[in-house]
Design a protein around this nucleic acid. Structure first.
Lengths: 159, 159
DNA sequence: CGAATTTATTTCAAGCTTGAAATTTTAAAC
DNA sequence: GTTTAAAATTTCAAGCTTGAAATAAATTCG
């Protein structure tokens, strides 16, 4: 039944696979919930929220390429999202003095106001969705997730 | 629906938000890695893999609507993915005797062979990506994730 | 200087995803 | 039995996402 046993220690491999499936179920479920709330309650999307959050942290603006690197999405992707935020008056592009190629993306005043409201709701939603864990459990979980992250980052991003 | 929690700036709220961001970073990173490997090494995608995995578990076939419910994606979504798997000869639709509306989606022999190979690689990839954790840590982590899952399932699945 | 390379961004095609509308078939109600 | 409602799919428009190709500007260097 199982495919060729080219795998390492069978038992821990299954344990890790099971862990992966649970992690995926948890984060996918929470993400779906956040998307639904952003859509139904605030007529926006998670990618837009992510871009606004990045720009809110960088009031001086971010070059399109920096935004792309920061969010770990493609250049073409941020082009489209910033376009749509700009259509709604939430963001804009500012020319960079010394470099005619580059643009800074920045939130407008309207964008800042909109994001501040969203951010508060977002924190409450997450707090609710993870409310089944005590503070201790949250910290233990965070620690283990960070340990797992160190490993993947080491193998995955040797920059 | 639970009413709005009016205690946003608790410390535990920030702790949970931090946990959420770490969880998202971990799963997004692993998912991106899996997508890349599926694409570069096997010329396929994660949604296709997910559909094939579901069909592999149900050799008798799954109605399109059951597949949609099982994977928690929209009906229209599975229509497109099964269409493309069928174009490649990996899946097919079978008429349901008593009901002219319904179809069973099923893997072809070629689809079963292809999935068996993918599944082995998939398990090894996940094992590698989570390799920074000991078996004990994996189990602790799984347990905490399951506890968090119980909570979210309770609140967002009012079936 | 001028050619070649690198950097910043946009455009594009293809696939994924959703919710809503449209189709077709089945079941229920009167 | 005919109308009505429910169920199973597909179609569609809009947005997200990617990698690759195209543009354009800046930098390197022979």
């Amino acid at each position: 039944m199982t495919p060729d046993p080219v795998s390492p220690s069978e038992a821990s491999s299954k344990t890790r696979l099971r862990l992966w499936l649970r992690l995926l179920k948890l984060t996918s479920g929470i993400e779906a919930d956040l998307r639904r709330k952003l859509r139904d309650d605030h007529d926006t999307t998670l990618p837009r929220f992510d871009v606004m959050a990045a720009l809110a942290r960088h009031p001086q603006g971010l070059k399109m390429s920096d935004l792309s690197r920061y969010l770990k999405v493609s250049n073409g992707n941020v082009t489209g999202i910033v376009d749509r935020l700009a259509e709604d008056g939430l963001a804009l592009r500012v020319a960079v003095p010394g470099d005619k190629r580059a643009n800074l993306a920045r939130l407008t005043a309207k964008g800042i106001t909109a994001f501040d409201a969203l951010a508060g709701h977002h924190e409450n939603w997450v707090n609710d969705l993870l409310g089944g864990l005590t503070a201790d459990e949250s910290q233990t979980l965070t620690g283990l997730v960070e340990k797992a992250l160190n490993q993947t980052e080491a193998s995955d991003d040797p920059s």
